[in-house]
């Protein structure tokens, strides 16, 4: 499996990354060298092997459904690039 510049542009959109057209060919080549290395996975005999998502057999711990976080808006909003009236500001979405 290999990427071409058109497929790369689709993946970049999914990842919300802007590609510089001047770099696309070099980037495609590098990603294909990574995917080529990764293709060695096809050698493995994985019939009847269950996927391992997590190194320990852990179950998701549950807690009481109660509010545990204080309101920290005043501490965290100054970190944002743009805020107003306690809201995060982004470019207009609906005209």
């Amino acid at each position: 499996m290999a990427l071409d510049p058109k497929a790369l542009s689709g993946v970049a959109h999914l990842a919300r990354l802007h590609l510089d057209p001047a770099d696309t060919d070099a980037l495609t080549e590098r990603l294909n060298s990574i995917l080529g290395m990764v293709d060695r996975l096809q050698e493995a005999d994985v019939a009847d092997v269950a996927p391992l998502a997590h190194p320990l057999d852990a179950t998701q711990p549950l807690r009481d459904d109660t509010v545990s976080e204080a309101d920290i808006r005043e501490q965290v909003q100054p970190l944002a690039p743009a805020t107003g009236d306690g809201c995060y500001l982004v470019p207009r979405v609906i005209e």
Binding site: M1, V11, A44, P51, L52
Partner: peptide, 20 residues
């Protein structure tokens, strides 16, 4: 790419099996 439609089984799921 590895998580995208059509490649999930070939890459991600297979990698998790190799991880096992």
């Amino acid at each position: 790419y590895a998580l995208s439609h059509g490649y999930y089984d070939a890459y991600y799921l297979r990698a998790q099996k190799v991880r096992r």
